[in-house]
Design a protein around this nucleic acid. Structure first.
Length: 442
DNA sequence: TCATATT
């Protein structure tokens, strides 16, 4: 019943000339050829919408493009124009599939202007909360969290129409306003994004796993869940996130192998076992071998522990010899395989082989990384690249991947020998990679 | 189950 606030019908406030009233929007863009510059991208996107900025996303260490970028548009309308004109609609020269243009992670949530309200009285009504917060803007959504018996959990989420409204409510109420019948002031902060909740969950799980006696978050369960860091001194430092920042205090990502590029952390034992399973039956395949000169075991270089091929197994270099492995051996190095095969992609483009030379492989053993995959398929020809897909979040193998050769003949002989080959409990499925990049031109 | 990547 508090509908008498501003009407949203006429809010073209993003065009505030020079005043900067509008809210810019960040888009994520995928399938961007690595060689393109920010200027080139700006020029291209300006054809479809207003553009404030383009940031190419680069690899932290090599500083090379990761094949994607952020695109900052001055308003949601402009962002939508870019999305509608480009997403899945245009393929940049050199890309294998069309542009992916979407709101960046957390962006949609941020645009909801959603606040968390804590320390509400247990018996509070929607109308009371609504009445209070309506003073600062148009409430688009209000949700008081309630438990089993209708009883309030003491907190709520609410969305405003604009960031300014939310911000002014936050500043006016947080830590200052006491609701009727309550002895403590309300807590108002920006609601967490999904990502922040995930991070918190991970952190919580981590701390519980590490033997912390899990003291009593039960006094303020819902509040606890929404606050920046687990336990907080109750009225002390309820700072809210500075406007315009995306939140997230640093959560020390405790996880194991979140490092892209270091998937070789499998314990040597597993590695040995996994590979060992490959040896006996592979012999027939090796019988038809056609070793290229580049495939040989480097003298003095340790081959895979547990691998015993009838003749010298052509483990070793992949990909026209990248410069790695100048070090001979370190006794503790558990990455024997890895060092011998730093599979492409680092050298930039061209991870795909010619048509018919690229394999899709399913049921790859869990513990296989790129190097192990490369090794297993190396006897059939020159491997240009080998990639096992891993879950973005956990770093766990998804058990499928690709191997690319420089010739279709190699790929075919790999299929002949390896398809159906029992490896680590399951049979490999080896087939030609689907090609969605073909007969487009004639 | 087919190269997808969020500074």
């Amino acid at each position: 019943m508090a509908e008498s606030t501003t009407t949203p019908t006429n809010n073209n406030n993003h065009s505030a000339g020079g005043g900067g009233g509008g809210e810019s929007v960040k888009l994520f863009v995928g399938q961007v050829p690595k060689h393109m510059t920010e200027v080139e991208l700006i020029t291209m996107f300006k054809e479809f919408s207003l553009v404030d900025e383009v940031n190419i996303i680069k690899d932290k260490t090599t500083r090379t493009s990761r094949g994607c970028c952020f695109l900052i548009c001055p308003s949601r309308e402009e962002a939508d124009k870019a999305v509608n004109a480009c997403h899945n609609k245009r393929t940049l020269p050199g890309a294998s599939s069309p542009l992916q243009v979407k709101y960046a992670d957390g962006e949609l949530e941020r645009l909801e202007h959603k606040l968390f309200v804590g320390m509400l009285p247990k018996n509070v009504s929607d109308a009371e909360v609504s009445a209070l917060f309506s003073k600062y803007g148009n409430i688009k959504d209000l949700q008081i969290l309630r438990g089993s018996q209708q009883t309030s959990k003491g907190c709520a989420f609410l969305k405003y129409e604009t960031k300014e409204q939310a911000l002014s409510a936050l500043e006016a109420i947080n830590g200052k306003h006491k609701m009727e019948g309550s002895s403590v002031p309300l807590v108002v902060k920006w609601a967490d994004t999904e990502k922040e909740r995930q991070a918190r969950r991970a952190q919580k799980a981590q701390s519980q796993a590490s033997g912390v006696p899990n003291t009593d978050p039960t006094q303020q369960p819902s509040l606890f869940g929404a606050l920046p860091m687990g336990h907080l001194p109750l009225y002390n430092g309820y700072g809210y996130q500075a406007p315009g920042t995306y939140g997230l205090m640093q959560y020390p990502l405790p996880h194991m192998q979140n490092q892209p590029g270091f998937h070789n952390m499998v314990p040597p034992v597993n590695r040995g076992n996994a590979v060992r399973g490959l040896s006996p039956d592979l012999a027939p395949g090796l019988g038809t071998r056609s070793f290229s000169p580049a495939n040989y075991i480097r003298p003095g270089y340790p081959s895979i522990p547990g691998l015993q091929y009838p003749m010298s197994y052509p483990g070793g270099m992949i990909n026209q010899g990248s410069h790695n492995s100048s070090h001979a051996t370190s006794p503790t190095a558990n990455n024997n395989l890895a060092a011998s095969s730093n599979v492409s992609t680092s050298s930039g483009i061209q991870t795909e082989g010619p048509p018919g030379a690229n394999l899709f492989i399913y049921h790859i053993p869990q513990e296989f990384g790129d190097p192990e995959l490369a090794n297993a398929f190396q006897t059939f020809g020159r491997v240009l690249s080998a990639k096992v897909f891993v879950d973005k979040a956990t770093g766990i193998s998804k058990c499928f991947g690709f191997v690319s050769y420089d010739s279709p003949v190699a790929a075919q002989s790999a299929i002949n020998v390896m398809n159906g080959y029992q490896l680590g409990g399951k049979k490999l499925k080896v087939q030609l990679k689907r090609d969605n990049k073909q007969n487009k031109l004639y």
